[in-house]
Simulated assay, not measured.
Amino acid sequence: MSETRNYDLVIIGGGPGGLSAGIYAMRAALKTVLVEKGAPGGQVTMSDEVENYPGFAHISGGELSMKFSEHADSYGLETISDEVAAVEPGLEYHSVRLEGGDVLKTHSVILATGGSPRKLGIPGEDEYYGKGVSYCAVCDGFFFRNKTVVVIGGGDSAAEEALYLSKIAKKVYLVHRRDALRAGMLLQQRVKAECKIEILWNTVPTDIKADESGVCGIGLQDTLSGEKREMATDGVFIFIGFNPANALVPAGTKMNADGYVVTDEKCETQMPGIFVIGDLREKYARQIVISAADGCTAALAAAHYVETKKSEEDFCEAPEGLLEEN
């Protein structure tokens, strides 16, 4: 039997951003619930090693996620293990409908659903993620100092990450399926001028190989001749796009051409009381620490919004004589 419950704040998504928001919301004494369909921690749980989160010189993604979760639990944050079916904005309250049938009525909502890198869909990609396969050069490039790496893609992200890796790795192969990059001209010029970067034109990856130490090679195919070959490499970085998980974003919410939600500096959308954080929000960079910071910002802003909303409700509900007296 379905149930309707009332909250000050509903957080959708239990990654670093959502858990950070939960911590700050509980400290602000908001009646808060976090809804997460999977394990807490989000994509960071799949990272074998994290070395760029402040305060931890070296920690696994799973361990960092656990620390986030334990911190939120220490404040008594309520969590619901369910999938959200819809977020319905309203004038008095917003409604969050769960797949299980329950409805959460709330003054404010923080969407922290993140997104995911587009995948190649080739053998070895999922199996060796975190063991030489990566979707973030800034996150994992350090582990490939003076090694050989392969970057897949031809857009701005692939070009930027190849240039970043060229400062760390011994050799960078940029694999692109066409005979011209899609990246901006200035980026193309920089890539072509970098002696450590070699572009493999008209080439697609077919599979990723590994041994007990991690990734050791990649299969390649020429798109013109069909010829296949194998190349030794220590790492494979994939940059063929990112899919923001925006299915729950209410209709009418402002998004950019790539599907990222546009917010103000408080992480609030143009719909009052609805906030978007983490990888779903339009921003310059996507890092764990930035998602956590978004969670803090949105929770503090939500607390101010809820306080203002409740004050207005109290004023409207006050007895007529009391209003005149004051």
Rank of each mutant, 00 (worst) to 15 (best):
L111S: 00
L323M: 14
E230G: 15
S157K: 08
A28W: 01
Q189T: 13
R190Y: 04
C136A: 00
G130S: 06
V109S: 02
K105H: 14
I59P: 02
A245P: 01
Q188C: 12
L174A: 02
R5P: 01
S60A: 07
R229K: 15
R281V: 01
C136L: 11
R5V: 01
A318V: 06
G121D: 13
L91H: 13
D207F: 09
G295A: 05
K37Q: 10
H94F: 03
D82K: 09
D156P: 02
D102R: 11
T106E: 09
M271D: 03
Q270C: 10
C136H: 08
A193S: 15
F275H: 04
A193F: 00
D140G: 12
G132I: 08
A39T: 12
A25I: 00
E160K: 13
T32E: 01
G76E: 11
D314Y: 14
F142C: 09
G217H: 08
G42E: 04
R229C: 12
V35M: 10
Q270M: 13
T269L: 06
A180V: 12
S157R: 04
E63G: 00
G13I: 03
I11S: 07
V215Q: 01
S60H: 11
G273M: 08
P319R: 10
L34M: 13
Y135H: 10
G219T: 02
I168N: 06
D234N: 14
V138H: 07
D140H: 08
A112Q: 04
G115P: 12
T206P: 04
E312Q: 15
L224T: 13
R286Q: 12
A28T: 04
D140W: 01
V249D: 01
A162G: 04
I110K: 07
Y173D: 03
Q43V: 10
A302P: 01
L174I: 03
V172K: 05
E317I: 03
K254L: 02
K119T: 12
Y7D: 03
P54L: 13
H304C: 06
G38K: 14
L300D: 00
L98T: 08
I168R: 02
D279F: 01
I168Y: 02
D314G: 02
L186D: 14
G114D: 08
Q188N: 13
L300Y: 11
A302M: 05
G153P: 06
G55R: 14
R286F: 14
C296L: 11
